[in-house]
């Protein structure tokens, strides 16, 4: 048992003997994400676990954990069925607080963009239009993924470039850690791949323009703070969103309102 296991005891499902021991990937306020395997020792999977909260009444805690795991699984299932790029659900035990999903190879979009932008700086040459086209193309893929998501009647609730993975196309070769080095070829490759949306812990089923607009607004703000140097290209996301999703015009009109007032209404009293 490692020190991390002592501090964050793993869920019972991960305590059985296994050829490949689970790895704790992230520890958030909500839950923990483990990398483990499902059915076959060669089939990697992501296991999300919501541990019990000691401050909550046990009855309330059980009710919330069950409802949240089950809601997340339902949303993922719905997206997956309708062709939105999300991880497939392998298995779940809502009462025990865990959900096993397809493991998505690749790096978060945030890492890929920052690596790419960082390289541009390193070469000390201004990025030319041809190179910038690679980034614009990635933005379009993001816009398409979000458009498909909203078309399905799901809003993500926490859209950021950390909650999107860039999965290498037709990959049998798992990319681990940093994207490839900054050769001209590698640089173009760094932005290649399929955009997969992850972490649906705050997702809800909604068809309202307001909710969809807030989803886009959260992404816009997160993008501006995470990638200030690429902020001006954000429009490419919205353009592709419009192409993918036929109800986009009314959402984008609402987005104007949301931008004017911020995500929150003004405080009364």
């Amino acid at each position: 048992m490692t020190a991390a296991d002592k501090q964050f005891p793993p869920p019972p499902i991960l305590t059985h003997p296994s050829a490949s021991p689970p790895i704790l990937v992230t520890q958030g306020a909500e839950g923990r994400l483990y990398k483990t395997t499902h059915l076959l020792p060669t089939l990697p999977c992501a296991l999300k676990y919501r541990p019990p909260k000691p401050y909550r009444h046990p009855a309330l805690d059980a009710r919330l954990t069950r409802a949240r795991i089950s809601a997340e699984a339902k949303v993922l299932e719905r997206c997956w069925r309708e062709g939105v790029p999300v991880p497939a659900v392998h298995a779940m035990d809502a009462a025990a607080g865990w959900l096993a999903m397809e493991w998505i190879e690749g790096v978060p979009v945030r890492v890929a963009i920052n690596a790419w932008l960082g390289d541009a700086e390193g070469e000390a040459a201004p990025t030319n239009e041809k190179q910038e086209e690679d980034l614009v193309d990635l933005m379009r893929r993001i816009g398409e993924a979000v458009g498909k998501l909203h078309k399905t009647g799901v809003v993500h609730g926490d859209l950021t470039t950390s909650n999107m993975m860039l999965r290498p196309r037709g990959s049998g070769t798992p990319a681990n850690g940093e994207p490839e080095a900054a050769t001209q070829d590698g640089r173009a490759k760094a932005l290649e791949g399929e955009v997969v949306l992850i972490d649906f812990g705050l997702a809800t089923q909604s068809m309202s323009d307001e909710d969809r607009a807030v989803d886009l607004y959260v992404l816009e703000r997160a993008f501006a703070s995470t990638h200030p140097r690429a902020e001006r290209l954000f429009g490419a996301i919205l353009d592709q969103y419009k192409t993918t999703f036929k109800k986009a015009p009314s959402v984008l009109a609402k987005l104007e309102d949301v931008r004017m007032r911020g995500r929150k209404r003004s405080m009364l009293g």
């Binding site: 009444h57 309330l60 919330l64 609730g157 926490d158």
Partner: peptide, 10 residues
């Protein structure tokens, strides 16, 4: 513990 709505959004 009586069942009451639980309304947290983010």
């Amino acid at each position: 513990l009586l069942d009451l709505p639980y309304a947290v959004k983010g």
